[in-house]
């Protein structure tokens, strides 16, 4: 009998030992998935940056000529990655914008955290084409994608003591070469008065040009307040704190004579270094000259927030 069996099955492998075809094929998909996971571990930022966003178009800035993607993503002030304008685009590759959790704390019903994916779902994402005026006398027009800051404030449920909001940027000297040097008092801190934060123009941007934010522009989430100088736009926000008193913001700490808490774009308040009555529009070319800077960067609707305030003193 034994001899007979061997004759019929010369390999000597028992039928029970053979892997069924279905299982065999499943093994291939498992391997593929493992490969993809390994690849995404190696290239987390590239995979993130390639992500396109679902968003609604809005009427904001429809008439403006956009600054090129190239200029928006290669000429940045982001001192955590160096003080040169080209430094952030080169150095920010080490930042991992995902996974990302924002801490919400201070004068709120309850301290909590929110993941970046959940944040993006608090309100429908919108495209907002805004002018951005830097305190250094240049400007851009950027198609941000984001959501009103108000959506997050409503979710956070601040208490009656919340008069201001403090935005604290991510600070990681290991991956941020500029943060190893005390050019500013790290971490970067910015702030808004509550009514400024609730203003419909104020957004948390998570993308630009229809895609998620490039690291050098403040991935994964940054503040955009278009009627204020660009430095108000805290990048890579890690903590949002509701507070009773005016926050000590980074640039005010660095030089209170030059930078104010409000930092509203104002052509009639000059800066000790830079002319504020006119600006250079990035991408306009070598011979285009300067354009006149407008009060509140042309966003007149915010004027009522400052009714009765001396904007020469509260610059």
């Amino acid at each position: 009998m034994l001899l007979d069996n061997n004759r019929r099955n010369p390999s000597g492998i028992l039928p029970s030992e053979i892997t069924p075809q279905a299982l065999f094929e499943q093994r291939r998909t498992v391997l593929k998935a493992a490969g993809a996971a390994a690849a995404s571990l190696l290239l987390p930022t590239q995979a993130y940056a390639a992500q396109t966003l679902d968003f609604q178009k809005t009427a904001y800035g429809k008439e403006e000529k956009l600054t090129s993607f190239e200029d928006v993503t290669s000429y940045n002030n982001y001192y955590e990655f160096g003080t040169g304008k080209e430094d952030p685009a080169r150095e920010a590759v080490l930042l991992k914008p995902t996974p990302w959790t924002l801490k919400i704390e201070g004068a709120v019903k309850q301290n909590k955290t929110i993941g970046i994916e959940q944040l993006m779902k608090l309100a429908p994402l919108e495209e907002r084409i805004y002018r951005m005026r830097c305190v250094e006398g240049w400007s851009m027009v950027i198609p941000w994608v984001g959501l009103p800051l108000k959506a997050l404030i409503d979710w956070a449920q601040p208490t009656g003591n919340a008069k201001y909001i403090e935005f604290i940027s991510y600070n990681d000297p290991r991956h941020m070469p500029g943060a190893r040097i005390p050019v500013l008092d790290w971490p970067y801190v910015e702030g808004l008065r509550m009514d400024e934060a609730m203003q419909p123009l104020t957004i948390l941007a998570v993308g630009l040009y229809g895609k998620v934010l490039p690291n050098q522009n403040g991935a994964p989430v940054r503040l955009v307040v278009p009627w204020k100088y660009g430095f108000k736009g805290a990048k890579a926000i890690s903590t949002i704190r509701f507070v009773e008193h005016m926050p000590h913001t980074s640039w005010v700490k660095a030089g209170a004579r030059e930078y104010g808490f409000y930092a509203n774009v104002n052509p009639s308040v000059d800066h000790p270094r830079w002319t504020q009555s006119s600006e250079k529009r990035i991408g306009s070319g070598l011979f285009a000259g300067r354009i006149k800077t407008r009060m509140f960067n042309g966003y007149d609707e915010v004027g009522q927030l400052y009714a009765g305030m001396d904007l020469q003193k509260n610059f």
Partner: peptide, 18 residues
């Protein structure tokens, strides 16, 4: 290139900025 010979702005810039 910067001021397009806008002398009013240039004079202001020189006087105001040390």
């Amino acid at each position: 290139l910067d001021y397009q010979f806008d002398w009013a702005d240039i004079v202001k810039d020189i006087i105001k900025h040390p």
